[in-house]
């Protein structure tokens, strides 16, 4: 499948500081759901996820490169769902350095300095993106 281009409006959502979600699946068919602190915009067709603790995610995508990522836009009452495919990991270079700096800033702001530590920037190709706009809350809600 060809990569799709990410809409411009998704970039601020990736920078809003709200954690994101990634679901992967092992080769034997067990889904794995994790909450991650950052999704990084690489270019129009690629994102990077911060690989910090959860070895299961990276093990899964090496067995089965498919993943699903959700971004949270509370102010826009919108969720973004990205279907992505793992491409490669980077442990140095400009993307890694920029993500490392952002992770440290997030850690500092959330009291997790010294705990959040970037091991690799995992680069994924975007296969599709879907914007899920939520209906306004009903009076009961």
């Amino acid at each position: 499948m060809n990569a799709v281009e990410l809409p411009d409006q998704i970039q601020p959502v990736m920078q809003n500081g709200i954690p994101a979600i990634v679901v992967t699946c092992s080769a034997d068919g067990i889904p794995n759901t994790t909450i991650i602190s950052q999704v990084y915009y690489v270019d129009k067709t690629h994102i990077a996820l911060s690989f910090q603790f959860f070895n299961k995610t990276i093990r899964n995508v090496r067995e089965n490169p498919q993943a699903c990522v959700a971004l949270n836009d509370l102010e826009g009452n919108t969720k973004w769902i990205l279907d992505v495919e793992y491409d490669h990991s980077e442990t140095e270079g400009p993307i890694f350095d920029e993500m490392d700096m952002q992770i440290e800033a997030i850690a500092s702001a959330t009291g997790m300095s010294g705990i959040f530590k970037l091991r690799a920037a995992d680069i994924y190709r975007v296969k599709s993106s879907k914007k899920v706009s939520l209906a306004p809350a009903s009076p009961r809600e």
């Binding site: 992967t24 699946c25 080769a27 068919g29 889904p31 759901t33 498919q66 279907d83």
Partner: peptide, 17 residues
């Protein structure tokens, strides 16, 4: 906060809030 994951017959994962 809670999120869930499933996968289809082709091992494609999906997120469900």
């Amino acid at each position: 906060v809670a999120v869930s994951g499933t996968r289809d017959a082709n091992l494609i994962p999906a997120i469900h809030y």
